[in-house]
């Protein structure tokens, strides 16, 4: 079979209902309503959404419930085997997709992964490059944040030690409580920053959709979000540790 016929076959499989032969919508045949076989897809496409970050949560929830009802495996107990297992597989895909897109941060992290961001892999490659070139690797986290994280961890260690020994250091506790307030503020400010990045990202995607070449801008906004997500996870962990030491 030539490549042409192969891809034509594939296109046919992807768009034609397996049961009645009519063209189908993404998950069900528009004509006969049968469940269609699962195809490898990202979570945005699963919901028929463009790869944009501003998503109406109410709309997403409605879509989720509507699709859950239609795909529920209980509806397919009397269906042919393949449709039964497809509905099961798609239901679980649907749950994963919804869980991931529902939360603003997991949605952002997921998009970054789709856009080829792999922090561990990139960190390793950057180290190897620095080693080969004899240069300094640029750390992914700003140095002053690292310094702050380190110092705070030292204080937390001291506070834990005090607790263990039954000793009390009110001034340290006061200082940690102040730090917690400051970090809470920083953490909350990140939500507004993330929203600005989202708007920027969506504008870039809109331009890409209209045929513009926006590769540079796309990478720039992407990397801005990587930086934000990194800072966020440090601050989140610090607040978590502070809560553990200070009590809520």
């Amino acid at each position: 079979m030539s490549t042409d016929t192969k891809s034509a076959e594939k296109a046919k499989l992807a768009h034609e209902c397996w049961s009645c032969g009519a063209m189908r919508a993404a998950h069900f045949c528009e004509s006969c309503g049968r469940v269609q076989p699962p195809v490898p897809t990202d979570y945005f496409s699963f919901f028929g959404l463009p790869r944009k970050l501003n998503i109406d949560p109410k709309q997403l929830e409605r879509e989720f419930y509507a699709m859950s009802r239609k795909l529920h495996p209980d509806l397919f107990v009397r269906a042919v085997d393949q449709e039964q297992s497809w509905s099961l597989e798609k239901s679980s895909q649907l749950n994963d997709a919804y869980r991931t897109l529902k939360d603003p941060v997991t949605r952002t992290e997921y998009l970054l992964k789709l856009e080829g961001v792999n922090l561990e892999e990139q960190s390793k490659t950057a180290t190897e490059t620095a080693r080969a070139a004899g240069t300094q690797k640029k750390q992914m986290v700003p140095p002053d944040l690292l310094e702050e994280v380190f110092e705070l961890n030292m204080q937390l260690e001291e506070a834990r030690m005090n607790k263990k020994m039954g000793e009390d250091d009110p001034s340290l506790k006061t200082e940690l409580a102040d730090t917690r307030r400051r970090l809470d503020g920083k953490f909350n400010a990140l939500a507004a920053e993330l929203q600005r990045d989202w708007d920027e990202w969506d504008a870039v995607i809109a331009r890409a959709e209209s045929g513009e070449i926006v590769d540079t801008e796309r990478t720039a906004v992407r990397d801005k979000m990587v930086d934000l997500v990194n800072r966020r996870s440090y601050i989140r962990n610090l607040v978590r540790d502070l809560n553990e030491v200070l009590g809520n």
Binding site: L119, Q139, M140, V141, P143, L146, E147, F150, V229, Y234
Partner: peptide
Amino acid sequence: LVGAPECGDVMK
């Protein structure tokens, strides 16, 4: 002083 943001580690 370096850090791995994925897991929140810091190393001096």
